[in-house]
Amino acid sequence: DLSALRVEEVQNVINAMQKILECPICLELIKEPVSTKCDHIFCKFCMLKLLNQKKGPSQCPLCKNDITKRSLQESTRFSQLVEELLKIICAFQLDTGLEYANSYNFAKKENNSPEHLKDEVSIIQSMGYRNRAKRLLQSEPENPSLQETSLSVQLSNLGTVRTLRTKQRIQPQRTSVYIELGSDSSEDTVNKATYCSVGDQELLQITPQGTRDEISLDSAKKAACEFSETDVTNTEHHQPSNNDLNTTEKRAAERHPEKYQGSSVSNLHVEPCGTNTHASSLQHENSSLLLTKDRMNVEKAEF
């Protein structure tokens, strides 16, 4: 173990290094160091905050020279020094078990990766560091076993998940096959086929009936047209017969005018059967003409 005197000496050296690497504005270890034209180094955030307070150039807090945003430059070497100082402080805390008085939040800088452990060898070769390295080497064999167990647990979990997924996939297939086998029997399929065939026959029977009705309507229309044509021909046949009657009536009127007047009046009210309204109107006109002729003949006879 380190003596108290040596611990104090190391602590004083760390404090001196820390004062050199402090920012003059925030009085902390410089984060993202930036250098000016006057070779003074500050935190990048502190300098941008200072420049944004005034429009135009501002003055350096140490030498009062003008500073602009374009004049600022990043210093990589200074950032490396800060990183190495942080590593020294971490090693000091691990070796002594004491917390550094002016320690900052170094938890963000710590890294437990194997590459980081290899890099620590180049920091300080001390008894405390050696003991700590031995402890780490002793704890390393235990870690692979834990990793193997965790991997086995994960693989077993994956296997159970896969088996569950396969079961879920197989179950719908089985149910679907069961439904297909038990849903419709052979008799049901035959009945469905016969039902479809009967429906098709009914459709075939319905369509000819409609065509037959249309044919019957067409035949009825044709018969009505033929009947009207026969009526017209009958009226045409009746007209010459009426003319013959008129000639006979004229002759009778010349011989017996008194008797014919009474008979002509009675004939006005008689309509021949089986004739249309057109034929009756023609008869009325003929009878009126005959009456006028008879009157003329009677007057001539009187004179």
Rank of each mutant, 00 (worst) to 15 (best):
N143T: 06
R165K: 09
S288I: 13
E249G: 03
K134Q: 10
Q125P: 15
A252V: 06
R165S: 13
A16S: 09
S71G: 12
C273W: 00
L2V: 15
L27V: 11
N246S: 13
S3F: 03
G128S: 06
T277N: 06
L86F: 09
K49R: 10
E142A: 07
S197R: 06
R169G: 09
T149N: 07
V34G: 12
L151R: 12
E32V: 11
L155R: 01
P33A: 15
E148G: 12
T233A: 01
E142D: 12
N157K: 11
N111K: 10
K109N: 09
S113Y: 05
S58L: 10
I124N: 05
K259E: 11
E299Q: 14
A133S: 04
N131D: 07
V34D: 13
N243H: 04
V7L: 12
V10L: 08
V177I: 00
T247A: 02
A220E: 09
D244Y: 00
I30V: 06
S216R: 04
L158F: 01
E148K: 15
Q201L: 06
K134N: 10
I20M: 06
S186Y: 14
K222M: 07
I123T: 07
D188G: 01
P257S: 03
D39V: 05
L51R: 04
S176F: 00
S122F: 15
R165W: 02
V177F: 15
C38S: 14
N131I: 11
Q201R: 02
I41L: 07
Y195D: 12
Q147R: 08
C90W: 05
T68A: 02
P114S: 03
S79I: 13
A101S: 13
L137R: 11
E142V: 07
C225F: 00
S266A: 01
C196F: 00
I88F: 13
D213Y: 00
T230S: 04
R212M: 04
G210V: 05
F227L: 09
E271V: 01
A279D: 15
T235N: 01
C60G: 15
C38W: 15
N276I: 02
K64R: 09
Q125E: 05
E8G: 07
E180K: 13
R255M: 09
K167N: 11
C26F: 15
N286I: 12
A220S: 00
R162G: 09
S228Y: 02
D119E: 11
Q125K: 06
L85Q: 15
T76M: 10
D188Y: 02
G128V: 11
I124F: 07
H278P: 09
K293N: 01
V153I: 00
L94P: 14
L29F: 01
Q147L: 00
H269N: 12
S126T: 06
N15S: 08
P61T: 03
L51F: 08
L21I: 06
Q18H: 07
T36R: 13
L51I: 08
E22V: 04
N157H: 10
N52Y: 01
C273R: 01
P33H: 09
D231H: 05
Q18K: 14
P240L: 05
A107S: 01
A4S: 09
Q173R: 03
T163I: 00
T36A: 02
K109E: 06
L136I: 08
K49I: 00
R6L: 05
E84Q: 06
D1G: 02
L146M: 07
E258G: 12
R77I: 07
K37E: 00
E8D: 13
F45C: 08
P33T: 12
K44I: 05
L48P: 09
K192T: 15
K222E: 10
Q138E: 05
A224G: 15
E302V: 07
L155F: 05
L151F: 04
K44E: 05
D218H: 07
L85I: 10
A223T: 08
I20L: 11
V232L: 02
F106I: 08
I41M: 15
K87R: 07
S152R: 08
K118I: 13
T230M: 07
V190F: 13
H237Y: 08
R135I: 04
